[in-house]
Amino acid sequence: MTASEPFNQAKDVTPHKRFSSGRILAIASNTLTELTRTKVFYFLFIFGLVLLGSSMLSNNFSFGEEFQMLKDVALGAIGIFSTLLAILSTAMLLPRDIEDRTLYTILAKPVPRHDYILGKLLGVFYLLFISIAVMSVLFIILLAHREGIRIGQAALMYENPDDLVAAQNQIRAAAFTPGLWAGLFLILLRACILAAVTLLLSSFATSNLFTIVMAFTVYLIGHIQSIARQYWLESGDLNAFQKVFLSITAIIFPDLQMFNIVDEVVVGRAVPWFLVIKVFGLGTMYILIYLGATLALFRSKEL
């Protein structure tokens, strides 16, 4: 080895990139591991129990009522668990890294702040995707199982083949309604938006509790604001103050009703895919803007 070799090697080293997908993915997978270590997936047992309980309970009802209730409870539970996961797991990300001093170790290395934030958010998205996918699979298995049982019962009840086919078709139509997949997809999208909002809040929050309370407030306002708007607009007599208040609320807070079609999906409404794509586009815009705002705040944050 000559004396000049180390210098030549240094020249060959690839320059430090401002944006690296490898770094982001590494932080994301690390975030997912950290979240998994907090035993966050234990909630799946509770979800399983909820499903099992509702299935046993709805056994006493007619097949129409049974499927309706099964879907109501399962999609409702998926919605609640995904909301809780999105808010609670994101709210603790930054404060814990600051408390453990992991954040300083990471940022001391050549890792830009935006890579760190992107990786953290992506890690939460992984978690949400895995959780919602597992819950959806459990739900679909149960629904298919109950459908099979009801079809078997129909076979014993009807002797006329035409009547049997008609009854089986009715059972199938009641079980797997067309918009079910779109409903599940939009639950995931809503959870991702909530995670992005929570990360934004936690980037300037002074405590975990503040982030969680504020995120739930945003969630509630996000659902109520469009109903309030509709109610006031239908009543017709809006004063200037109400108009200003409504406009400010609509501009600042996300309209989460845009991503809530579960109530209509469970009753069998079909959702056109072009509409799902439009809502997906809107959801992506929400996530990007909240991410941009988080980066702006985190960049100027004194650590």
Binding site: K71, L75, G76, A77, G79, I80, Q257, V262, V266
Partner: peptide
């Protein structure tokens, strides 16, 4: 809060 189907059930 978006859970009318659940409440109805």
């Amino acid at each position: 809060g978006g859970y009318r189907a659940l409440v109805a059930s």
